[in-house]
Computed example of a mutant assay.
Amino acid sequence: MTTIEQALNQTAAQFAQSGSDSPQLDASVLLCHALQKPRSYLFTWPEKALTDSELSTFASVVERRLAGEPVAYIVGEREFWSLPLSVAPSTLIPRPDTERLVELALEKAPQIQGDILDLGTGTGAIALALASELPNRQVVGIDLQPQARDLAASNGQKLALSNAQFLAGSWFEPLKNGTKFALIVSNPPYIDGADPHLSQGDVRFEPRSALVADDNGLADIRYITEHARQYLVAGGWLLFEHGFEQGEAVRAIFQQFGYQDVSTQQDYAGNDRVTLGQFTD
């Protein structure tokens, strides 16, 4: 007989030994998934014995995690900005650091009226966070992959956020000529293809096309920065998430294309994470 508490402790020990950063959390999330119960259930019934069927289901998802598969892909969901989002291997897993991009966009939004564009939207995390906080604004999310566009749209429907819409295509391609935005935000591919971190941890399972860019990870940032000028209203803002060592390079790209008030802001860990600039026409 194995109780909930025993299963959690044994699995957390396995995860810790395998190098997980959050072994106890991983174990509890996967057990909730296997039991189809909320986390409160685990704490309320620690002495409850698991059935053979429940143990078998739990063992199968534990095995996937021990093989390195991200918890978010196993359970099919990740919370971002307090919004439950479905995730899939066609998209990046939303990360807490990206909430800093949302915060900074929300700081700029009151300064200027107009719609908001999220490029490389993935699960729709950024677009939907902004749509939830700015119900009177229209938010458009674009992703190259139709599967990602469909997933983002599904997330928007589940959250009943009717002010968010999602399109498939390469960067600005799906937009009609003359379309203008007050804010353009993006968490684009920004990792150099030679970066050793690409072969480590959860990132091994994420779509490479959403991670890697040419020119030391700066090619997509450069492209968006140049072409965003056609789609920003005068006084509009462009904001990027980027790698913690890329702040100086990204600021130089903004300045090259004539943006004003360019700055780099840090994430919760004190690392350079978001660069923004204003297009003044």
Results as ranks from 00 to 15, higher is better:
residue 160 A to V: 04
residue 25 L to F: 10
residue 67 A to F: 04
residue 246 Q to P: 07
residue 189 P to S: 05
residue 55 L to Y: 08
residue 273 R to Y: 14
residue 115 D to N: 12
residue 218 L to F: 05
residue 98 T to P: 08
residue 211 L to D: 08
residue 56 S to V: 03
residue 28 S to G: 12
residue 134 L to Q: 09
residue 169 G to W: 05
residue 224 I to T: 07
residue 70 P to K: 09
residue 207 P to Y: 08
residue 98 T to R: 11
residue 143 D to F: 00
residue 66 L to F: 03
residue 149 R to T: 15
residue 268 Y to H: 15
residue 147 Q to L: 05
residue 255 Q to I: 09
residue 210 A to S: 07
residue 155 N to R: 10
residue 160 A to G: 03
residue 154 S to F: 01
residue 48 K to F: 13
residue 61 V to Q: 05
residue 16 A to V: 00
residue 39 R to W: 15
residue 243 G to L: 04
residue 16 A to K: 02
residue 216 N to C: 14
residue 72 A to V: 06
residue 102 V to G: 00
residue 6 Q to T: 11
residue 19 G to I: 00
residue 77 E to L: 13
residue 134 L to T: 06
residue 144 L to C: 01
residue 193 G to L: 01
residue 249 A to H: 14
residue 119 L to W: 09
residue 53 S to I: 14
residue 170 S to V: 13
residue 80 F to K: 11
residue 72 A to D: 09
residue 118 D to H: 02
residue 120 G to M: 12
residue 111 Q to F: 06
residue 222 R to G: 03
residue 75 V to N: 10
residue 226 E to R: 15
residue 102 V to K: 00
residue 122 G to K: 02
residue 149 R to I: 08
residue 112 I to T: 11
residue 151 L to C: 04
residue 144 L to E: 11
residue 206 E to I: 08
residue 5 E to I: 15
residue 151 L to G: 05
residue 256 Q to R: 15
residue 32 C to V: 08
residue 6 Q to W: 00
residue 82 S to V: 01
residue 82 S to E: 13
residue 280 T to E: 01
residue 210 A to P: 10
residue 201 G to D: 15
residue 156 G to H: 01
residue 76 G to W: 03
residue 87 V to Y: 09
residue 201 G to F: 14
residue 190 Y to Q: 13
residue 28 S to W: 01
residue 180 K to F: 09
residue 80 F to P: 10
residue 52 D to K: 12
residue 9 N to E: 11
residue 235 G to S: 07
residue 94 P to F: 05
residue 225 T to K: 01
residue 39 R to Q: 15
residue 205 F to I: 04
residue 141 G to E: 03
residue 203 V to C: 10
residue 103 E to V: 05
residue 20 S to N: 07
residue 57 T to F: 02
residue 270 G to Y: 13
residue 214 D to Q: 10
residue 60 S to Y: 00
residue 235 G to N: 02
residue 218 L to P: 01
residue 16 A to L: 00
residue 52 D to L: 13
residue 210 A to C: 05
residue 252 A to G: 07
residue 28 S to Q: 15
residue 270 G to L: 01
residue 60 S to R: 14
residue 79 E to M: 09
residue 185 V to M: 07
residue 147 Q to D: 14
residue 106 L to Q: 10
residue 217 G to P: 01
residue 204 R to K: 14
residue 130 L to N: 05
residue 152 A to R: 00
residue 128 L to R: 07
residue 161 L to E: 06
residue 61 V to L: 01
residue 82 S to A: 15
residue 204 R to Y: 08
residue 201 G to M: 11
residue 172 F to N: 12
residue 257 F to A: 00
residue 148 A to T: 04
residue 180 K to P: 08
residue 208 R to Y: 14
residue 130 L to R: 06
residue 171 W to G: 02
residue 130 L to A: 13
residue 41 Y to M: 04
residue 198 L to S: 04
residue 225 T to F: 04
residue 193 G to R: 14
residue 166 F to A: 06
residue 236 G to E: 06
residue 104 L to K: 01
residue 194 A to G: 02
residue 1 M to T: 14
residue 68 G to Q: 12
residue 216 N to T: 10
residue 46 P to L: 12
residue 96 P to H: 15
residue 50 L to Q: 05
residue 113 Q to I: 05
residue 51 T to C: 08
residue 200 Q to M: 14
residue 134 L to V: 02
residue 114 G to K: 01
residue 38 P to F: 11
residue 135 P to S: 14
residue 188 P to F: 13
residue 49 A to G: 09
residue 137 R to C: 09
residue 126 I to W: 05
residue 239 L to P: 02
residue 157 Q to D: 10
residue 4 I to S: 05
residue 67 A to R: 15
residue 196 P to C: 12
residue 266 Q to Y: 15
